[in-house]
Design a protein around this nucleic acid. Structure first.
Lengths: 346, 346
DNA sequence: ATGAAAGCGCTAACAC
DNA sequence: GTGTTAGCGCTTTCAT
């Protein structure tokens, strides 16, 4: 037996007494005589035939599979992107392959290069850092790629970015508007694009609000809960009346430290995060957070990719870049400490 | 140009001045003369050759891809499974395809049937309900399948299950041992396997502890945060001194309701969840939870599947079933209300 | 409307 | 050690 005993168009053709070409036509909904159509269909059903997608791909040169590579499948932000991408690609008849790179640059490059093995027709990748090697590999990729993140100008690749500068600024202004004056900032690594941009937004907004930047109120650390808790412990000596965090995990960690020290949120200290992930609603009190449009970015990226795929006409046509606008989601963690009215000005 | 201009073994053969067979051999590390080997390698490198995985799969009958189908990619329990499965399959040289079925039975069946399209070599599936149709489809599946969940006896399919009966019982005994006597229970739908088993564990443990089952203390609802919050609101009139929840999301929701009503956790009411997902640590106070071995189950399932794949010898050999033992993880949400000593007896 | 046959890119006999 | 050739299962001309 050549294969595992699976029925193929050959078995169907034999059973129905027609040629394999007729089987193929009938199964793909092309014209055939009533009689032929029926016999083929019946034979296929009786045999429990399922078309071999691999053979079809080899012939057609397309797999109808797309890949999404993200740094961390456990991060709700990427889960939101997956959902959005899934919705778009599924509607277009594509399967989605998920790949977690664990933020390892080498792994990201490997995914990029693996486009050449024709396992998927296109790729959406969300790199946390973008090195020269990334750009090099991006340019020579064997298929269409869309980057979720900030590409340097001039790189001929479609991309979708978040406006975390504006996002951070919105949060800081909100905290100021609700009466906070000592606004601490727990940020991620400063050598990442997100970290750098959030820092810029923080500084800008402080200036706008007439507050001075005080480096004792700023901590750079990793993007997870424990780091947030540790950072908050260090900041406590500075007696901030608000803690703005570069993502929800950091905010959750910071909130734990504050509550454990007996401080009340938001009465004594306000806490705000970014991403508006599922964690923000899960926190106590529910966390104010800046939605950077994860779903929106995912959806947009998928659309751009599909567009390249369907209109493969001009592979060299100008790259497109979209920016998702940030949106503040106010919850309990930043209710005004003193004058409830001022909350309205947010 | 036949394909998208991608180099193939034909282009390499031409450039190196050898036959395609030699190219194939060299690239697959088989014997060849020094000179030949070198010329092929150089040609491949210059052309930026990447083997076409589709063609290789068609020839070899295997894709070296595995599929994991779970109900909800946003649920930390499944994320933990993905991580564990990924680790095992990656080490064995398999790629992992992720599929979120959204707990839709029809989607689960579709995934099962799609094994026939040869897109992946095997499947791990985590169905939330198991209907007769599931079993039927499972049996006639076109490739090896491992189920994470409880299969009725007699179904000839490998499976890995959690012991949620024992898990629920551990939690209840812990609450009793730390001084709680009015232990409410927020459970998922009773017509699901997990819901049914947790209920059994709850009843058993209550009896062991000499407490009587009081249906006013029990609520059946959906497995999410909002349902947990709503259920807790209903239970408040019964003044429980502990709330045991069938998963962490329910526990988180319940905790929110309690805190919002000004009750203290654990001083006034203890709260415990199940799954020990990332959410348990994210909650406030950090949630005591029963680890049902998500990682363990994922790992085990992957191992079973790989074993079937490698030793495809006897497809009809006896199905194996593993059960992962539950483990209580005590955190702040169930510290004893009165006598700190009694916590030791947990 | 239908059948014969070519070929997608690769591996593996089989000859030389 | 190397080349020739036959498929893997399918779609798609090209004849008939």
């Amino acid at each position: 037996m050549p294969n595992g005993g699976q029925p193929t168009i050959v078995s169907i053709a034999a059973r129905a007494g027609v040629s394999i070409a007729s089987v193929s036509r009938v199964l793909n909904g092309q014209g055939a005589r009533r009689d032929t159509t029926e016999r083929v269909r019946r034979a296929a059903a009786e045999l429990g035939y399922v078309p071999n997608a691999v053979a079809r791909s080899l012939k057609g040169g397309r797999t109808r599979q797309l890949t999404f590579a993200m740094p961390d499948i456990g991060n709700p932000v990427y889960v939101a992107m997956v959902r959005a991408i899934q919705a778009v690609t599924k509607a277009a008849g594509y399967r989605l392959l998920l790949h977690s790179t664990d933020a390892v640059a080498e792994d990201e490059l490997a995914v990029l290069r693996s486009l050449g093995d024709r396992t998927s027709d296109g790729l959406i990748i969300c790199p946390i850092r973008i090195t020269d090697e990334h750009i090099e590999t991006l340019i020579t990729a064997a298929g269409p790629v869309v980057v979720i993140g900030s590409l340097p100008p001039g790189v001929p690749v479609d991309s979708v970015r978040a406006d975390s500068v504006a996002g951070a600024a919105i949060a800081v202004r909100h905290l100021h508007a609700t009466g906070r004056r000592r606004i601490a900032f727990i940020n991620g690594p400063s050598d990442t694009v997100p970290g750098h941009n959030r820092d810029e937004g923080y500084r800008t907004a402080l200036a706008e609000c007439g507050l001075t930047y005080d480096e004792r109120l700023v901590v750079h650390t990793d993007f997870d809960i424990d780091s947030g808790a540790a950072a908050a412990r260090r900041l406590l000596t500075e007696a901030p009346d608000a803690v703005f965090c570069a993502n929800d995990q950091l905010a959750l960690g910071a909130a734990h430290t504050l509550l454990a020290r007996g401080l009340r949120i938001p009465e004594d200290v306000a806490v705000a995060g970014m991403d508006d992930s599922a964690l923000a609603q899960a926190g106590w009190p529910p966390l104010t957070s800046v939605d950077l449009g994860s779903s929106e970015r995912g959806r947009r990226a998928a659309e751009l990719l599909l567009d390249r795929l369907e209109n493969a006409a001009e592979p060299g046509s100008a790259p497109r870049t979209t920016t998702a606008p940030p949106r503040l989601v106010v919850r309990g963690s930043t209710a005004p400490a003193t004058d409830p009215r001022s909350a309205r000005s947010a």
